[in-house]
Structures are given as structure tokens and as C-alpha cells.
Simulated scan of single mutants.
Amino acid sequence: MPIVWIALAELFGTALWFTPNAVIGDLEREWTLAAHDLGWLTGAVQVGFLLGTLMIGLSGLSDRRDASRLFATCCLIGALSNGLLPWAGGLWPAVALRLATGMALAGIYPVGMKLMVGWAPQRTGLGLAWLVGMLVIGTATPHLLAGLSLGGDWRSALWCASLLALIAGIMIWHLGEAPQLRKSSGETPRWAGLGAFRIEEFRHAASAYFGHMWELYTLWALIPLLLATALPTLTTTQLALGSFALIAIGGPGCWLGGWLSLHLGSHRIAQLGLSGSAACCLSYPWLSGVSGVWAALFLALWSLLAVIDSPHFSALSARACPASLVGSALTLQNAIGYAVSAASLAWLLPAWSTLGPWVAWLMLPGPLIGLWVLRSRQKGFAHS
């Protein structure tokens, strides 16, 4: 079944994203790194991903070439750059390799969305919900690895991630392009991705997505701090596993949203997620004094609502575009959304030390703007 095939390939391919986070202790000893050097390794992937999505989105590459071949090629490049890390020998060669890995991931995540749209044109919301759900679980995995013993040589963890990426590439190479996309391949000119913003429905769906991205990654980054504040007696292992669970709950949340979209439509699920996460942002500062299980349950609900809508912005955007433009449009939307999340992280994470729980109010404008944009185009999305 193509939906399951692509979703699994997405999970395997995005296993490359945070591999150094899982073995940072070994890297610190091996290369005599300081603790803050992890920021360079993680940041290099983020920068590479942003550059890669901009290149693919602006060039129209994912629409002018077979998306399945681009996905598989990027899996190979990412597997090689990640697999070479043990021989980097130091921070800066490793940063260069992580930059290459980030650029390869730009051909895995957004291009995977195009493949899903092509193979599930009548169930776009459901298909993208499965895909994003897999990505969410992959994002949470470093916390799981931090709470479990890797067992064995640290290099094996890196090579295992590279092997998974190679398997993902083989899976998608074998699956190939959706029949209707083969016909449109090659019709998209360079810079065509920018033209998607002339389509009003796409412009509004993308703008709502940008508001959503202002909140999402900042919430995920803050979850260990929020959980530690609510449950100060947790051990390091318990905190890591708890953080994994609170972020990973978004995976089943996305799948639930995908099922609901079959009955309610993607537009309503997007509104539901934005409304719910806005309510959580608004109320958290007053509820932050609550501790124990109730606090953890609130954070789980917030985490689920913050991501349940994520696939449906892409579904609305994809439906607004002609088939020859879907890959470029989604990749460019992803690039801008990622830049928005980077700005949010850079500004709001440092604010935690002075504002504490009230930083939630600085996340609130994101979902509110998203709701306003979707409501302003209620009629245009009536059947989505």
C-alpha cells in the first residue's frame, strides 16, 4: 500500500536528523568537544535543511524530475554523509558533514509529501497525517535514545541510521512515481514555486502554516523544561523518557487527525488544532503551578493539539496547486515555515530564563494568526 510504504520510508529517512544527539557523550570524549559544541552539530543540519529546501523549492527540481528518484538520491547522500561521521575526527569536519546531511533531508521530508499527495490524491489529509506522524516520532527519538543504553560501539548507532536511510531510498526507488505525476514531470519551469503564492487558497493555507510553525518547534524544545518544572523529582532518565513520550504522542495525534479529516475535512482539523493549541498557550501560565500527573496530562494534550493540524496545512496547499507545481510549492512553504520556527526558537528559548511559564503567551500569536487567516478564507476551503 503506497501510503504505508511512503510513511515508513519517511521514518527511516529522517532517522538521520538528530543522530549526533544520541551519541554526543561519546563524541565529546572522542573529539574533546565542549558541551555547547552539540549546538554546532545540530544547527548545521537545520541550516543545511533550510538551504536545501530553498534550492529545491525555487528551482522546481522536485517537479521537473521524478520525485521518487530525487528522494532516493538524497537518501543515499544523507546515508553517506552521516556514515562518514566517525572518520570526521573533529568538530568542523563533522559540521560540514552535518550540513550535507541537512541538505539531503530537504529532499526527503518535503519531497516525501509530494510523493504522498501523488499516490493518495483523494486522501491527501490522511496520507500526510501518516507521513507527519512518522516524522514526529523521529523527532522525539533522541529523547528515547538518551533514556536508553545504546549498547555497544557508538559508531553502530550512526551506521544503523545510515542503513535505515538506504532502505528508505530503495523502498521509494522501487515504488516509483505516481502515474498522474509522470505525465506532469518536466513541465515546471525554474522559480515556479514562487508562483504558488499568486494562488489565493495556497497563500492562505501557507500563511496559516507559518503561524503554526511559530509555536510548534518552540514547544517541543521547551517540553523538557516544562516537564522538569512540573515534576522536579524526576531523574535524568525519567525526564528523557517523559520528554520522548510527550513529543511522540503527536504521532498518533496526527493519525487521529488524518482519520477525522475523512469525515470533517482538513480545514476543520486545522482549525481544531490551532484553536486547541491557542487555548493551551493562553491558559498555561495560570496552570503552571499545578504539578504531578495533571501537569503531564496537560502537556500531553498541548503537544498533541500543536501538531494534529500540521499535515492539513500541506494538504490544503497541495489541493490549491496544479499537479505540476505541488512539489516546488510544498518545499518552498516548508523552507519558509522552518525559517519562522528558527526565529521563534532564537527569540523565545532565551526568554524562558526571565519569563518562565509566561513565555507561552509569546507563542500565542502563531496559532491566533493561523486561525484568522483560515477564517478569512472559510468559503475557499469549504470542501477541503
Rank of each mutant, 00 (worst) to 15 (best):
I336F: 14
A72G: 03
A178Y: 12
G273K: 03
V47Q: 01
L299K: 04
W92P: 10
L274S: 05
G83I: 01
L166I: 13
A79Y: 12
R203F: 07
G57V: 12
P350K: 12
F18K: 08
G118S: 14
S162T: 03
G292T: 08
L175Q: 07
W119I: 10
N21P: 01
W191M: 14
G138Q: 05
W191P: 08
P86N: 11
G107Y: 05
F381Q: 05
T236V: 07
W255D: 00
P311E: 07
A360Q: 11
A335R: 10
G242P: 07
N334G: 15
W352Q: 10
G102N: 06
A205G: 15
G125Q: 01
L216T: 12
V111D: 02
A335L: 14
L301F: 15
V290Q: 10
T42C: 11
A320R: 02
E201H: 07
G337D: 09
A306R: 05
R268L: 15
F49P: 02
S156V: 01
S291Y: 03
A300V: 07
M1R: 12
D309I: 12
I223N: 04
W302Q: 01
G90M: 08
V111P: 08
L348Q: 09
V293F: 14
L85I: 10
S344W: 01
L105H: 06
R182N: 13
A35K: 15
K114A: 13
I172L: 15
K114S: 11
W361S: 12
L51I: 11
A161V: 04
T32H: 15
L150E: 02
Y109I: 14
F71A: 11
G48R: 00
F298L: 13
L371N: 04
L272G: 06
P93A: 12
S384G: 06
T139P: 03
G60V: 02
T139D: 09
G138K: 02
V4N: 08
N21K: 10
L85V: 11
A106M: 13
W130T: 01
Q271E: 13
L264P: 03
Y109E: 06
L128R: 04
Q180M: 08
S376M: 09
L8C: 13
T53A: 15
R182W: 08
R69E: 15
R377Q: 14
L11N: 00
A329S: 14
R123G: 07
G195E: 06
R65V: 00
S341G: 11
L50Y: 08
F244I: 12
S185D: 05
A120E: 07
G193N: 02
A9S: 07
W358G: 00
V290W: 12
E201I: 03
F202Q: 07
L8T: 12
G125T: 03
I269W: 03
M113N: 13
M134S: 07
G253L: 05
F202R: 05
V132Q: 00
M113D: 05
S184L: 02
K114M: 10
I6W: 07
A279F: 12
L325M: 15
W173N: 09
W5A: 13
L27H: 04
I108W: 01
L76N: 02
F12K: 00
G186T: 11
L27T: 00
G151P: 02
W255L: 14
L256K: 03
L272Y: 08
R64D: 06
E28D: 04
